Amino acid sequence: MNLFPEQGPDADTPPVCSAKGCRVPAVWVLAWNNPKLHTPERRKTWLACEEHREHLSQFLGVRGFLKDVVTLEEWSAADR
């Protein structure tokens, strides 16, 4: 199963940033959940490049959705 829907069907294609219109390879994973919709342990993910990490984090943080920000490498290494 593809953990990163932004990644193309070709496994060699790196996952890209979730920011609208950005096609830069992702470096960060922003784990979040909407407590009105998701159980507390559920984590949705957005991917971010260096340029968009702060903007996307702020967007989720203002809403109280942001739970964690880790590198894509760390996220991929963890058994999630």
Rank of each mutant, 00 (worst) to 15 (best):
F4L: 06
P5A: 12
Q7M: 11
Q7W: 04
G8H: 11
D10Q: 10
A11K: 09
D12M: 05
D12V: 01
P15I: 03
C17G: 09
A19G: 06
A19E: 15
K20W: 03
K20C: 11
K20S: 10
G21W: 04
C22D: 12
R23E: 15
R23G: 02
R23N: 09
R23I: 05
V24A: 08
V24F: 01
P25R: 13
P25F: 11
A26N: 08
V27P: 00
W28H: 14
V29K: 07
N33E: 07
N33A: 13
P35I: 02
P35K: 11
K36Q: 14
K36W: 05
K36H: 06
L37F: 14
L37D: 08
L37A: 12
H38W: 03
H38I: 07
T39R: 15
E41D: 15
R42S: 12
R43S: 08
K44H: 15
T45F: 00
A48T: 09
C49M: 05
E51D: 15
H52R: 00
R53E: 15
R53F: 03
F59Y: 12
F59R: 09
F59A: 11
L60T: 06
G61Q: 08
G61M: 00
V62M: 06
V62Y: 06
V62F: 05
R63E: 05
G64Y: 07
F65R: 11
K67W: 00
D68T: 13
V69C: 13
V69R: 05
V70A: 12
L72W: 02
E73L: 00
E73R: 03
W75Y: 15
W75Q: 09
S76T: 15
A77H: 07
A77M: 01
A78G: 06
D79P: 01
